[in-house]
Design a protein around this nucleic acid. Structure first.
Length: 283
DNA sequence: AGAGTTCATGCCGTTGAGAT
DNA sequence: ATCTCAACGGCATGAACTCT
């Protein structure tokens, strides 16, 4: 199968528009139309429902989507691997959720690169749902995340424990807890387990004014709204010191474990062990 | 020669202005 | 408020062209 057909399929499914897809691919609309028709003939199944001003994926199209993505990612990786083989280098693909990159990995990966490691890294920020699938497809070698994947083929270990503290932008009394909408409670996605632990620990929490999986968005909103949020103690340490943030004494400190996961049959097992050590991800 | 692309055109649904 | 109709937008198709 020609990968151009898959690229075209992904672009049309992304833009939901033949003309826009054609523009993005530097083709004419009719070329895009022809490619999609060709792919549909190849798979013997319609991939899009064409109604005026509304292109929708059919169920066959929906099923093709993850396959198309992984085929193209795998091909891209294979090309890089072959190129790197000539220089005797290894490429390791690391995936993590946005907030794990923010609070832990970004800084460490940058530090690792600065040490002139012979490894070539590929860093991807992905949703928690996508990470295990990408390990199984072997388009990622190592994942770092809040919730351990429950898949037999994947090995997993807790590599870090982080203390989460409730902070506000203004000092509060010792018995204060957020309970009103005006308290501007900001909910950050620290994994499924955190959500249930939080509900148990603070059942009176109001509805969040913002829910996000990005630490940067949360921090911004926290300062803009004078709100409150559960954040990693290490991240807010300097702001606490400077008096820009305050710990809510009445709220419990919640521990979050961060897990590293990889494929049990990974060909890079030794390299991954070394990498976990170099990234200081030891429990 | 064959595959892929462009160009011109057709078909059909949507939109919006004007008439009733 | 509803209807009509022209203009527009968007996908499909076939002939011609280009490239390898």
């Amino acid at each position: 199968m020609d990968t151009d057909l898959l690229k075209t399929f992904l672009e049309v499914s992304r833009t939901r528009h033949f003309g826009k897809a054609a523009e993005n691919l530097y083709l004419t609309q009719s070329a895009v139309s022809a490619r999609i028709r060709q792919l549909e003939a190849l798979l013997n199944s319609p991939l899009f429902e064409r109604t005026r001003h509304n292109i929708r994926l059919t169920s066959a199209g929906e099923r093709l989507l993850p396959h198309a993505e992984s085929i193209l990612t795998a091909l891209h990786r294979a090309r890089q691997d072959v190129a790197l083989h000539q220089t005797h280098q290894q490429q390791i693909a690391i995936g993590a959720t946005a907030n794990v990159w923010d609070i832990l990995l970004q800084e460490r990966v940058t530090a690792l690169l600065a040490t002139n490691s012979s490894r070539v890294l590929r860093a991807e920020s992905l949703s928690a749902e996508t990470l295990p699938r990408r390990l199984l497809e072997r388009t990622l070698d190592l994942c770092v995340m809040f919730d351990p994947p429950k898949v037999d083929e994947l090995a997993c270990k807790a590599v870090k424990t982080i203390d989460m503290v409730l902070v506000t932008t203004e000092a509060k009394t010792s018995d204060w807890l957020p309970s009103e909408p005006d308290d501007n409670w900001i909910m950050i996605d620290w994994g499924t387990r955190f959500g249930s632990e939080l509900a148990r620990a603070l059942p009176e929490l109001p509805l969040p004014i913002l829910q996000t999986n990005s630490l940067r968005i949360a921090m911004n909103a926290l300062h803009q709204t004078n709100g409150c949020a559960y954040l990693p103690a290490n991240v807010v340490a300097s702001e606490l010191e400077r008096g820009e943030l305050f710990i809510v004494d009445a709220a419990p400190v919640l521990e979050r474990h961060i897990y590293a996961a990889w494929h049990q049959d990974s060909e890079y097992q030794t390299t991954l062990d070394e990498l976990i050590a170099e990234l200081r991800l030891q429990a």
